[in-house]
């Protein structure tokens, strides 16, 4: 019996579109645009067909997706592993809540909270920017824990009760499509920046090699500040959005889920790109929600799912799908 080996080869269209574009038909153009179009269409159409309960789940999923992309951008393209997601959400949420409670309408309080919150988060993380890897992760994780305790202990900003009675979005449709549009715009803008803009290459240089960035007459800290600002602005927007989705802000905005789920989403979806964390969030949040029927056992199933990915499927879903899409496999004799 002859021994067989599985051989993988790039599909022709993949080769032709790799660095120089030599496409010959609409079919091939569709092949390249396909995945993106499917994602956009799915996000736009899905709200029309699901029940109101799942519409809310979708809105929350959008928040986590935004946080996961924010995490993926910093981790995969700038080399900073930030567990500050919960802090961004908390700062954005409380800022928007305080502004709204003071009479600023929702349409202004969200953008102000997003930008001002990102400035605050960036300034607070500024002293830790020389740190890398797990050290930066630990420090950024301390902020949400600290902020939550601080509010509970001092009773500022409504203390443990939070600030109730905030403006809500006029309808779930507005809320949902706002989340979807912001998500798509962020995704398009970020992936353009890291792949085609020169400043994106500087960010990737920061990840690969800090000394070379310094030797290239570029101010390393300034580029890290820019990256942290972009990433935290996505988080503070998510927080401000949640504040008005619930009509309430409270300490639960500093819940560590917002920091940890992006990591899990990256494990499930696959690291190295922005789309891996996005895919992970789009799978994990609805999955967690649909397991609600199991009660507290939900956490167990959730953990088993994560362990499965960490142990058996380390490449993540996105890389697997990408491989199937771009290559064909066949058995050859050896």
């Amino acid at each position: 019996m002859p021994e067989l080996r599985k051989e993988r080869l790039d599909r022709g269209v993949k080769v032709r579109s790799d660095s120089i574009y030599a496409l010959s038909s609409m079919k091939e153009i569709l092949y390249l645009l396909g995945p993106g179009l499917v994602l956009i269409l799915l996000l736009l159409v899905l709200p029309l067909v699901v029940s109101p309960y799942w519409q809310r789940v979708m809105a929350i999923t959008g928040v986590y997706a935004l946080l996961s992309i924010s995490f993926g951008f910093l981790a995969n393209y700038v080399g900073l592993v930030s567990l500050g997601g919960a802090f961004y959400v908390g700062v954005g949420g409380y800022l928007s809540g305080l502004l709204n409670a003071a009479g600023v309408p929702l349409i202004l309080s969200i953008p102000i909270a997003t930008l001002l919150g990102a400035v605050i988060c960036t300034l607070l993380l500024l002293p830790c920017l020389p740190l890398r890897g797990v050290y930066f992760a630990i420090i950024s994780f301390i902020y949400p824990l600290f902020a939550g305790r601080l509010i509970a202990a001092t009773g500022y900003f409504g203390g443990t009760d939070g600030i109730p009675g905030l403006d809500r979005f006029p309808s779930i449709w507005v809320a949902l499509y706002m989340a979807i549009f912001i998500l798509l715009i962020v995704l398009y803008g970020l992936s353009r920046m890291v792949n085609y803009e020169d400043v994106g290459l500087v960010f990737r240089g920061v990840k690969d090699n800090e000394l070379a960035i310094k030797a290239s007459a570029l101010n390393l800290t300034w580029y890290k500040v820019q990256a942290v600002f972009i990433s935290s602005a996505m988080g503070t927007f998510a927080g401000a959005y949640l504040a008005h989705l619930y009509g309430w802000v409270g300490m639960s905005l500093f819940a560590i889920d917002f920091s940890i789920l992006p990591v899990a989403a990256t494990v499930v979806g696959g690291s190295g790109t922005l789309y891996g964390p996005l895919l992970g969030a789009l799978i994990l949040v609805p999955a967690s929600e649909s397991m609600r029927a199991f009660g507290t056992l939900r956490i167990v199933f959730y953990a088993v799912l994560l362990v499965f990915f960490v142990v058996f499927w380390t490449e993540g879903i996105l890389d697997f799908l990408k491989r199937k899409y771009e290559q064909f496999e066949h058995w050859v004799r050896i």
Partner: peptide, 17 residues
Amino acid sequence: RPYPTLPAYKNIIPPLY
């Protein structure tokens, strides 16, 4: 100290930037 995940010519873009 190259940026190993980038093509050679993209290694030269950060200093040009």
